[in-house]
Design a protein around this nucleic acid. Structure first.
Lengths: 317, 317
DNA sequence: CTGAAAGCGCTAACAC
DNA sequence: GTGTTAGCGCTTTCAG
């Protein structure tokens, strides 16, 4: 396809003038503008984005680091980011890590390569100390709180929401409460859950903490373990509605009544939870994603908290 | 940050040599390679991607056009694409249209701007005649069948799956069968559903076709309409498991037994369907997405069909 | 209002 | 093996 020189030549003007009409600059005579536009249409010309990015030193495109893309929670965050990116005419690239730290770093390097103007981290597998150095190459925004001044944050107060939920369960008279987490001890979210649990209930029987839960299947597995226990829990707080759904399934298959025999609370207000009438803690991830996008393109390092809300349905009231 | 000239100067070599070590070319003496690498590390240098893309005339990045990004079905497709892109070291950009034809065209133009090497269309709002011209600027792959020779296709035989499902229902003795579709008449999928319905049942009572269904709420609305009818359907085929879940909910709230009073079949084998034990037609969208990606980077115009499968659970057996 | 010219940072012949 | 050099396609001073 033609380039800007070709257009200039055919329109009988200089490349600067073509560039001016391309970028809608003022100070171009209507006659030349029309002539140039005519040639552009005729030649079916479109400016080369790489050349433009190269000289402008920005790409108007950001990346979203997410461990999985088949997980409702991360999809909600991505959804929020996309909502805004469309309005602001930015392009967004999905960067799936499967929690591989190397992969994550290689994505961060896209900032250095000037391939991306900014990156939103929905969940990370590297320590902040490994991530922060990349902030000098582009904006980095996290969907969790961190006090590093170089990192913008759009976050929900996970700890408070865990405290709230456990306290709610305790107030209802539950003393044997189990919970699920995704990754092992190293994850921020896992740590906070454990801390909140101890804060509310004191001791944490290790059998009441089931790890590596992501899907319905994981929920069934968790329920199996939990309900085989001598000392069955009377309530569980799942780390997502899909996991909660698995627990619900298994409990029902054992003829347990929900919530009388087992109270269940999930997270993120996902379709399966709505379908099964599960109570849930909605962290409003779509809003978190929208806020993260805004921070990113404003190159802001602010820390913005998004409120969560408890939605009570039949599985625990 | 430094550029390749700077590195060359400091390492006491020419830019070509630096370029060679950057691109792991053979024919570079180990001593120079080491010297260059040392300066690269020292200066924390990384090549500028825009400059590389500009000269190489490719970006190793593709786009995925999708109407919504908060819809399970499209997420499955995207998931498939991402699965492969990670393996092949490609970058993928999400292009949400909300079925705005202008927006869709502007995304297609990214091919012309050389911002994207290829585009996968999961669902479109423009006629093929408007889309095909862009195929000369980059690879276009569709997730539906079309015989345009310029377009690669990774598709499922929707028509056959609809025939199968309706036939199954008919064989079970159902004569009053309703179904849901997403967009109005203009959509390909809607057309096929209607055609298949007529093929199997002959006449289509207009009240049995509910439009604009995407979510659980839409399913509830549909159920409300359907179950208020004089002549209630005895089976429904929903255009997604979320919609099916809404129908299930509403039917249950009216004390109907599933499947005795109302048989329900959904589509896409989504979590909510698993949770509610809904029968479903799984079009294996993740596989479709994977295949679409492969076609795209191979610049193939092949038409590849992905088999679907019926999964029978309690809501219809 | 318009054009000449100097890059942006990199790759790839082509010579040596 | 290595360096020179000519671009890739565009934006943006700087004169005029």
């Amino acid at each position: 396809m033609a380039n800007i020189n070709e257009i200039a030549k055919r329109a009988g003007v200089s490349v600067s003038t073509v560039s001016r009409v391309l970028n809608r600059h003022p100070y171009v005579s209507e006659s030349k503008r029309a002539a140039v536009q005519h040639v552009i249409d005729e030649m079916d010309y479109a400016p080369n984005r790489s050349a433009v990015d190269l000289i402008r030193k920005e790409t108007r495109s950001i990346g979203v680091i997410m461990p999985f893309n088949d997980n409702q929670a991360f999809d909600q965050l991505l959804h929020g980011v996309l909502n805004r990116s469309v309005e602001r005419d930015y392009t967004v690239t999905v960067l799936p890590t499967k929690y591989d730290p190397e992969k994550e770093l290689s994505y961060l390097a896209m900032l250095k390569n000037k391939q991306l103007d900014g990156i939103i981290i929905t969940s990370r597998s590297n320590a902040w100390s490994a991530i922060v150095p990349y902030a000098k190459y582009g904006t980095i925004v996290a969907c969790e709180y961190t006090d590093h001044p170089e990192i913008g944050c759009a976050y929900m107060d996970r700890y408070a929401s865990f405290i709230d939920t456990f306290q709610l369960l305790k107030d209802k008279g539950h003393t044997r409460v189990a919970f699920m987490t995704a990754r092992g001890e190293e994850s921020n979210s896992t740590q906070l859950t454990i801390k909140a649990y101890r804060q509310v209930f004191g001791n944490l029987p290790s059998a009441y903490h089931i790890r590596d839960c992501y899907s319905i299947d994981d929920g069934e597995r968790a329920a199996k373990q939990l309900l085989d226990l001598e000392c069955r829990p009377t309530a569980v707080y799942a780390n997502g509605d899909e996991v909660a759904a698995g627990i619900y399934q298994h409990a029902r298959s054992m003829q347990l009544r929900i919530p009388e025999d087992l109270a269940i609370i999930g997270q993120e207000n996902q379709p399966v939870g709505i379908g099964l009438r599960l109570s849930t803690v909605d962290h409003q991830l779509v809003k978190v994603g929208e806020q993260a996008f805004d921070l990113t393109i404003e190159k802001s390092k602010d820390k913005v908290e998004i409120p969560y809300r408890l939605i009570m349905r039949q599985s625990c009231y």
